[in-house]
């Protein structure tokens, strides 16, 4: 549905997007992750026709955004970052303006606005001026405008930034609901969000792809380290450190002593659980807990993007 090809964009001397290549198939919910300034917004702005690429291009349903931006714009619904809606307009007037701009026929406009008010729960604020709305409502108005023409592709730039936890859950459930039938691309730097809503995650850093895959795949494959945590009773930190010295491949160890229990966390290149257990069995420590932790997306994210 969307093909990003050798996309590069410079702002003066600064390279925001550097030879980016990936494809988004129809019906996927894609999360674009990355630290601030990684090039997420720039990529989305080029896709939606707000910015021009320096070189390379994006094809939407086979149409080049550089050649026929109007046709591409028709297929895309876009919610820019922080939902910059005309502050002096009434919500209803604003939606009507968007409906007209999107070329919805006159007799269908009111019905469509009613439908959107239902989907985005905007009924109570229809008569209010945009500048008097809370951030959550503003975001929902923004979402309604993106959905207006029932587009095949929905592009959302940080749709949940600045919202409270309840509003975040609401927006996410709307995204998930819409995502059943549409292609959605949204950017975020909140990792739990990507985890909760996306089929696929692309992490970009310094304008290039750092990782690409489903959250499940990313968690098990990236970095090649496994995390083990164990809780011991009657054990001394130095004794354990001595035992651990016997193992090769341990990258990091952290200890956390509380009362007479000691929590040890290890990250190592290979799975050492079996060998470690037989070592522990030889001592008279009491093993309270022993588990392999799966790497969190946060961990992967930090590892991939820690150079800045």
């Amino acid at each position: 549905m969307v093909q990003i090809k050798e996309l590069t964009r410079y702002y003066g001397q600064t390279c925001a997007v550097d030879n980016l290549n990936f494809e988004i198939p129809k019906g996927q919910i894609l999360g674009l992750l990355g630290p601030n300034g990684a090039g997420k917004t720039t990529t989305l702005r080029i896709l939606t026709g707000y910015l021009q690429p320096t070189s390379g291009t994006i094809y939407v349903d086979g149409i080049d955004v550089k050649e026929d931006p109007l046709a591409v714009k028709k297929m895309i619904g876009y919610l820019p970052e922080s939902s910059p809606i005309y502050p002096d307009m009434i919500v209803f007037d604003y939606l009507l303006f968007i409906a007209e701009m999107r070329g919805i026929e006159k007799d269908r406009q009111i019905n469509r606005i009613k439908e959107l008010a239902e989907i985005c729960s905007l009924k109570e604020v229809m008569h209010k001026t945009v500048m008097n709305l809370s951030k959550g409502y503003k975001q929902r108005v923004g979402l309604a405008l993106a959905l207006m023409s029932d587009p095949d592709i929905l592009v959302l730039d940080e749709p949940t930034s600045g919202l409270d936890p309840n509003q975040i859950v609401e927006i996410r459930s709307i995204i998930k609901e819409i995502g059943k039938t549409k292609t959605i691309i949204f950017s975020t730097h909140i990792l739990s969000e990507a985890e909760a809503t996306c089929d696929r995650v692309v992490i970009i850093n310094n304008g290039a792809i750092a990782a690409d895959g489903s959250t499940e795949v990313l968690k098990t494959s990236e970095g090649g380290t496994s995390l083990v945590s164990l809780t011991l009773q009657n054990a001394d930190k130095d004794d354990i450190a001595a035992v651990l010295k016997g193992f090769t491949g341990i990258k990091e160890t952290s200890y956390n002593k509380s009362g007479d229990t000691l929590e040890v966390k290890l990250s190592c290149a290979e799975d050492i659980r079996a060998a470690l257990y037989s070592e522990i069995k030889k001592k008279d420590w009491i093993l309270l807990e022993f588990k392999q932790e799966r790497k969190s997306l946060e961990h992967i994210f930090r590892e991939l993007t820690k150079d800045n």
């Binding site: 702005r45 939606t48 026709g49 707000y50 109007l70 714009k73 028709k74 895309i76 876009y78 820019p80 970052e81 922080s82 910059p84 809606i85 005309y86 502050p87 968007i98 701009m101 999107r102 070329g103 405008l145």
Partner: peptide
């Protein structure tokens, strides 16, 4: 200033 130009420009208009 308000950024609303981004919405206007990404609507299907030239």
């Amino acid at each position: 200033k308000s950024g609303s130009f981004e919405i206007l420009k990404t609507l299907p208009v030239t």
